[in-house]
Amino acid sequence: MSSTILIVDDEPQVLEILSSYLKKDGYHVITSENGKEAIELALTYPIGLLVLDLMLPDINGEEVCKEIRKHSRVPILMLTAKSGESDRIKGLELGADDYLVKPFSPRELVARVRAILRRSGEYQTLSDHIQIGELAISLTYKTVTKNGIPVELTPNEFRLLTTLIRHPGRTWSREELVSEVLGLDFHGSDRTIDTHVKNLRQKIEDDPKQPVYLKTVYGLGYRFEDPTKN
């Protein structure tokens, strides 16, 4: 399921950049440059998450957040130039789910959006038990079997597999997989993902050189395919 993200910021360039990154990640995006319109959209449109700048031309973002929280539990990610602890605490107490200080990387914003949606339940599109072809995965027990035989995966390999398997057919860049699998604090080369993919193929593919599950999309990254649907 693709969530709709509402971005509220009075800087057109910020709206354009964030919209581009979120759309690239598969989200539907709507935008607003003022607080009054943001409240109306948030309370009438079926959005999955609100990205809300605190400095708006008509009503400040804190008032927008307060008004929306009277009627809705939609997840809210606040954007602000204020980095003080008291400002962050105030934002969270008003009902924000997360707080991002400007300037920030658009990649970090996308990663935080994913994390908020996972926590809120929007991102949970699969049941605990996943069966695709010969593979069976338990998300609760973090186990994988192939034809009933246990497959021993490292934590990173398991995260890589479940990240890819949640969106069959979607191509993930190395950069995106680093963020999802290794975390925002990882500072090594994104080519590390190649090693994890290679090791994972050795464990789940009949012929790692001709994979049926983990496909390379040359020049772009990797995707998971369901061979039962081909």
Rank of each mutant, 00 (worst) to 15 (best):
I59S: 03
D58Q: 06
D58H: 07
V29L: 11
E62C: 07
A38Q: 05
N60H: 09
D58A: 06
E33D: 15
A42R: 02
S32T: 11
V74S: 07
E33N: 15
I30P: 07
A38L: 06
P75Y: 05
E40M: 11
G35H: 03
P75W: 03
V51S: 05
E63G: 01
V29C: 12
V51E: 01
E40P: 00
G48L: 05
V64A: 10
E67D: 14
V51I: 15
V29W: 08
V29H: 09
L54S: 01
D53P: 08
K36G: 08
A38K: 07
A38D: 07
G61R: 01
I59F: 02
L56Y: 00
K70M: 12
Y45E: 14
K36L: 13
E63K: 12
I39G: 12
I30M: 07
K36I: 13
Y45F: 12
D58K: 08
I59H: 03
V64H: 01
D53N: 14
E40H: 14
E37H: 10
P75S: 10
E40G: 02
K70F: 10
K66D: 10
L43S: 05
V74D: 04
I47G: 02
I30C: 08
K66C: 02
I47H: 06
G35E: 02
G35I: 02
D53F: 09
H28V: 15
V29F: 11
I30N: 02
H71I: 01
L56W: 01
N34Y: 11
A42S: 15
G61M: 00
A42M: 06
V74W: 02
R69M: 07
L41W: 01
M55W: 05
I68L: 10
L54Y: 08
M55E: 10
G61N: 01
P46E: 14
L49W: 09
C65H: 07
S32A: 15
P46V: 14
H71Y: 13
L56I: 04
N60W: 03
